[in-house]
């Protein structure tokens, strides 16, 4: 398997570490971390990523804005986006999916679900 570049956008260092630690179990993943939406956009423009995982509630720029901007970027039109959030309401899920997110996972962290979703989207 060739290496995949994955961007994890999450303002909580603990949650970020939990996600990164889980993703490192998939061989061939190169993981880059971002603290918020703006940091995420900077890293997305500096490199080419194959998968994006993002929180919603973040300072400076939230995850929904990030999803919307990523989908308007021709380089990332088809890149899978997974939203991982505390927001469990149906309307939040529908909004994120309508903006272009591929999957929506709620917190508390569900490592197995995250791994299954990533494997499904990346066909690994």
């Amino acid at each position: 398997m060739t290496g995949y570049k994955v961007l994890v956008v999450e303002d909580s260092p603990t949650m970020r570490q939990l996600i990164v630690f889980a993703l490192k179990r998939i061989r061939g993943f190169q993981i880059v971390e971002a603290n918020d939406g703006v940091d995420g956009l900077k890293k997305l423009s500096a490199d080419k990523f194959d998968l994006i995982l993002t929180d919603i509630n973040m300072p400076i720029m939230d995850g929904l804005k990030l999803v919307s901007m990523v989908r308007n970027d021709p380089n990332y039109k088809e890149t899978p986006i997974i939203v991982i959030t505390t927001e469990g309401a149906t309307e939040d899920r529908e909004r994120a999916l309508a903006l272009g997110a591929n999957e929506y996972i709620t917190k508390p962290i569900q490592t197995m679900k995250i791994l299954e979703t990533v494997k499904k989207l990346m066909s690994v």
Binding site: S12, P13, T14, M15, L18, T86, K107, P108, I109
Partner: peptide, 14 residues
């Protein structure tokens, strides 16, 4: 802050 993050993200308390 880390205690808060753990309780939010691992336990799921609001």
């Amino acid at each position: 802050q880390i205690i808060l993050e753990i309780v939010i993200n691992l336990i799921g308390a609001e």
